[in-house]
Design a protein around this nucleic acid. Structure first.
Lengths: 187, 187
DNA sequence: AGATTGCATTCACTTATGTGAATAAATAGA
DNA sequence: TCTATTTATTCACATAAGTGAATGCAATCT
């Protein structure tokens, strides 16, 4: 059993038959380390589910990569702003490791949700869950210092240091690599 | 014509007949200044559309109000984390001015979306739009200084100073009132 | 193995923001 | 109108994070 099947079963309580139908909307795809899921300027057309590997969302600002988020196993990756607005992306999304993903056929999923209305709830539920997570992050950035945010990150993603170089972790926290070193030194 | 009708018409292109059906899911409600929509510890059960007035989301942290967000006319107000998780709220939401809102009957809306499937898209679309907005805010908090964030706020909510005391604006920006004063002084 | 490159750490110094207190200005109450 | 209270500003000083450079370490390449 793969991560996607486990995910659909445990998060949405789909029956094996339903899961089988849903799987017809996905195809497998692999990324090499540093392959792009989405590049600045491109139109985002896809949604993927990460079966294995790490992706990073970032803005390129005068030679500097400003990290916005990471995605790991069991996360969904897409960029709503471009996907839904049919706008060129201002965001880059790149595989930090070799990755295996499930590529969603959005049209197929839409028609499937006509037969199986419960499938339609996936989209809503995802957006609501990701919004909640993002709201939480705003709160942390607004009212906690870098050390507290780092501790929360370690708690929420204990394996982060094994999977992501430290200067990207610093950027995710909104600080410089030197500052993260300093924070780690005193702890 | 009220804001809700205008909103449904222009954002979702509902016909007047559809709008009429949708309106049966709402009832009017008013808040006095400083009334709570949601108090820490309560279970959030409602969703409202702000017809007139200002609401503020905030955490109470040792005697201090840490502002998370504001809501104005044409905004929706609820707290997903509590509403969907059926959890006691860690957030307060309070009217900063007298307010008139449309209170959504969620059950009614759910059943209406069975007859009128397009109604079901409202919920999805809202969550996706709010997630996009929140994502943007994370980016700003992470990689811009307070002055730049303040300028963006003034651009996005030009009337903010007429509607919200400055020390709440500072808290929204993640800084102290004295720091916002300083930033305004040099500009 | 040696050389190269990329990453993490440390340091001295700078800058942005926090802190607490004093004051001024605005608002609300009597 | 006068007073009390709340809100905004300013200041001197403290602290957190940024900056640029030096160093060391580890991984990769030949």
């Amino acid at each position: 059993m793969n991560n996607l099947v486990a995910y659909l079963t445990s998060n949405f309580h789909f029956t094996p038959t339903e899961v089988a139908s849903i799987l017809t909307c996905f195809s497998s795809k692999t990324y090499q380390k540093n392959d792009f899921f989405l590049k600045e300027g491109q139109y985002c057309k896809n949604v993927i589910f990460v079966e294995k590997g790490v992706f990073m969302y970032y803005h390129q600002v005068d030679g500097d990569e400003k990290v916005c988020d990471f995605a790991f196993e069991n996360d969904w990756v897409t960029y709503y702003k471009s996907l839904l607005g049919q706008l060129p992306s201002d965001m880059n999304i790149r595989a930090l490791t070799a990755a295996t993903v499930w590529l969603l056929d959005i049209q197929k999923m839409e028609s499937l949700s006509k037969e199986l209305p419960k499938v339609g709830t996936i989209r809503t539920s995802l957006a609501e869950a990701y919004f909640t997570k993002s709201t939480q992050r705003v709160t942390h950035l607004n009212h906690l210092d870098a050390k507290a945010r780092y501790e929360i990150l370690l708690r929420d993603m204990p394996s982060i240091h094994q999977r992501v170089p430290q200067y990207y972790i610093a950027s995710y926290l909104g600080i410089k690599p030197q500052s993260l070193s300093r924070i780690r030194a005193v702890k």
